[in-house]
Write a protein that binds this DNA or RNA. Structure first.
Lengths: 218, 218, 218, 218
DNA sequence: AATGAATGAGTTTTCATTCAT
DNA sequence: TATGAATGAAAACTCATTCAT
């Protein structure tokens, strides 16, 4: 029996195929709605290989999360650490960064949202997610404090509500694209063109909103 | 054989039990993650009764949606139609209304969010949801126009983005309660007390935010 | 509870509806392939009524047989008893008679054939069928003896093989109509026109054949 | 997952066990009257293995047909091609051949007859059967033409009616063995002895009949 | 006399995983 | 190391029948 892999390992080619396929299918059909056979077929590997490499379907899900979260955590720190720009522009940069990630990793964010809706009985997975969130939140908190210290942001900001607004609004817009199309009569616009338009509008909206709540005395 | 019910019918006691149970379990474990056996057990009815009354698991899901959506559509209109209050207070009222509904129908909103993440192959269900959303959006659009006409709201408001912000942010906060607790050191607060606190904070946050984006020239 | 009906009763309207519907559906889909719900729907009665009137699905099958067999046994005797025509013409008349019944009671004959293929565990039903067959065979035997006594038929005729040939060939032709159409390029001929043609050809074939085996010394 | 086999493959041992068992049980109890559990039990394999190997119960039925039809098609050609014997003796040989196959493959022929009675919605299966029949019919047609060319058979023979007579009569006799026993007072004769007797009589009967209709001017 | 509601036992099929090699 | 074969458990659903009225 192969040792069940935990954290920070390098996956071989087959394993990566499996993870990518799982991410895609889990995001589309949900965890229970996707069978390991489907994943094996998508990844063009033998069914038994999934149990063999990851131990179980559950463990595969963890691997997917771990793979993406560890793979994308670093950039945020660079933004916050950058001395050259003002706090509000760091916020703008943050918005650009998150919307980019969201639009580029649709599968994964869908999957993450999905899993958050479960009462996650899977404690390991929950811990991975919490840790990642906490780290991000701390970084943003520092950024806000910096703005407040410089007198550019107003006092009394609930950072976690603010971040929830950023993520929640973005997700909501993102996962309601078909509805947004219909409402605004954009059914016939090509997919990529539409996504560019939507991202632009979303960013503008978010930036306006964050400027308002961060800088105006209300 | 009972005719499979479609729309606006009154469900009998057993049927309601089933719907309520299904709503709860679907919201917790997802559609595929919940078996009809589980639902039958929760509702304390025979398994066969679910097929008997609703035809299939899929149809039961539709029934759940229909039951809640048709059951809660009306109140919004009253808010908008009310002559006694200003547009911005209607918005506040709307925020109170939505957060109330969200906190009181946790199961259903969780379920709805879940299902929206699927590429819903179930066209009937999608239509039910779209229709309900469109109706709400139209009401809000009128409200915004009213505020603009009265010179109280600024021009150029993307109503659908605004509503996405309301729903998205609320949902995000709502479904991240455990995280919010941890972050803010509220692990030991009793559940209901915490929910009241959270709702209060969320409402304040939303009202501030909406006032800012609706009324300030940015 | 109503007494379960046995033999020679008069069925009321609803009961007849059920029997006719059952005959049709059993003949098409087989006994196990047809559900009592299907029958109830076809007969436009309540499902429970079938158990109520006939006791069980099995008993309903018996009722179908009994209904048809008792309903059609008499005419054969008239043919054989007729003094006006020669034995060979009685045979011809018999062929006409059987092919008529076959083409007019397609459902029932299909059903009967079907049931004969089962190792009929249902002893009651088997007895009904055997009795009917035996009676027919005796009549024909007498007819053959008459022809032999008159020197018109040859000796040494195995009557049961002869009757099997009549029934078997007719059935085979009858239930292979689609194949016969294809083979003979008659796919586009209207159904009723085709049936008339087929019946005519089948009768001619059978009459020739029976004349040959009954009258020629070989 | 094994690719679902189509046509002309070699089945492994387990698969053959399943096919043989299915043939037996389907022939006895009909398709709907036989459960996959029964088949699995008879074949002494796991229930899931049937789906695993054949995909579905329906596909298993197809496999049974294909297995037998492809397995027995060849011999007929040898008979027809044989230069050493006259056309009428080829017909006799054909009768011997068919009755042999019928008595040796009782299960399969019962099953085939059964399935022909259904309005076969299964188009694949229908095609398999039609093709096999057509091929046989063409061979016989050639044989008849040969006899006619040599002046040994009369003109105007409807080959498909003739073949239906052969198959229909044989089947009828075959599947009414218990009745034949009773009628002729042979209830106590041992099964195999009776079958030999019956086959002998049937063959004689068929040969007489075919000689009559093929050679005599009527 | 007739039936809507209800159900336990049954159906076929799919599932994630294990085993032998 | 990798995999085709195999399987027990569970899935959703249908069945004929019964029961309370």
């Amino acid at each position: 029996m192969p040792e069940i892999k935990v954290f920070k390992v390098h996956y071989n080619e087959k394993q990566e195929q499996i993870i990518i396929s799982a991410e895609k299918l889990f995001s589309e059909g949900g965890f229970s709605g996707t069978s390991v056979r489907d994943i094996a077929q998508e990844a063009k590997v033998n069914v038994a290989m999934i149990s063999y490499y990851f131990g179980s379907k559950e463990k595969l899900l963890e691997a997917v999360f771990e793979y993406r979260i560890l793979g994308t955590a670093i950039q945020l720190e660079n933004i916050v650490a950058n001395d050259k720009i003002t706090p509000i522009h760091k916020i703008y940069s943050l918005i650009d960064h998150y919307t980019d990630k969201l639009f580029n990793n649709q599968c994964f964010y869908k999957l993450m949202l999905r899993e958050q809706l479960k009462q996650m009985e899977n404690a390991d997975l929950l811990e991975i997610i919490y840790k990642s969130k906490k780290k991000n939140l701390d970084l943003i908190s520092n950024l806000i404090s910096e703005g407040q210290a410089k007198g550019q942001f107003r006092k009394k900001i609930d950072v976690s509500l603010m971040m929830s607004t950023l993520f929640g609004a973005s997700n909501q817009v993102f996962f309601n694209q078909p509805f947004y199309r219909r409402i605004n009569g954009l059914e016939s616009m090509p997919e990529d063109e539409f996504q560019i338009l939507l991202k632009k509008r979303l960013r503008l909206h978010l930036k306006n909103m964050f400027k308002a709540i961060l800088t105006h005395e209300l």
